[in-house]
């Protein structure tokens, strides 16, 4: 199977179907990324815009990277920023932590504690670039190096930002208490 980079290379030589194949490979991942950041309805509108932006900027793809997914997250983040800026003033970004509304993720949570309520303030206190790296690693399962690619920053910078974010979260009052409860509960079940 051709790598994403090879397909993008072919698309630059006129084989537009090659780019479509790349986007088909990653549509669920990018769609989920958009939904997590903007909610499903907005994500459904934005996905086509992300594809068009990817098509128009494919020349900028660094073909030394075989996997295009981090690059597509970067394109998607740019579209999200346009989207957030275009929202009317009376309809501000509802959640500074970037959590989409309209979806209950709590089925996986076995604790009675309100994890969301604890984490949201802590996330909000992080620097925006710390949150971006954190989300790409924790939610999109990227390596720190790939998160750096998506955000257009050196890998060392991304590593530092992730370290700062994790430290800040771990030591945030509510989060540290939550972690202690979780781990104590696990110990009790052993």
């Amino acid at each position: 199977m051709d790598s994403d980079a090879e397909l993008i290379g072919r698309s630059l030589k006129g084989d537009v179907d090659a780019l479509v194949e790349v986007l088909d490979r990653h549509e669920v991942a990018v769609g989920s990324y958009l939904a997590r950041r903007a909610g499903r309805d907005a994500a459904e509108d934005l996905l086509g815009e992300v594809w068009v932006a990817a098509f128009e900027s494919r020349w900028s793809y660094d073909q030394s990277y075989p996997d295009a997914r981090p690059w597509l997250y970067g394109v998607a983040l740019n579209r999200l920023r346009h989207y957030w800026r275009s929202r009317p003033a009376e309809d501000p970004v509802p959640d500074m932590s970037g959590l989409a509304t309209g979806w209950d993720p709590w089925s996986a949570v076995d604790s009675g504690m309100d994890t969301r309520a604890v984490l949201l303030p802590a996330l909000t206190r992080l620097k925006p670039e710390e949150r971006e790296v954190l989300r790409l690693v924790a939610w999109e399962d990227l390596t720190v190096a790939d998160a750096a690619r998506a955000l257009g920053m050196p890998a060392g910078t991304a590593r530092r930002l992730l370290h700062q974010a994790r430290t800040a979260l771990r030591t945030a009052p509510g989060v540290s208490a939550l972690l202690k409860d979780r781990n104590n509960a696990k110990e009790a079940h052993r």
């Binding site: 769609g31 939904a35 984490l119």
Partner: peptide, 21 residues
């Protein structure tokens, strides 16, 4: 459990509908 696990618990998102793709 560490802080990354907690953050991961918030990753759920309502999936896009097939027609959106």
């Amino acid at each position: 459990t560490d802080e990354m696990d907690l953050i991961s618990e918030l990753k759920g998102a309502e999936p896009l509908r097939p027609e959106a793709y």
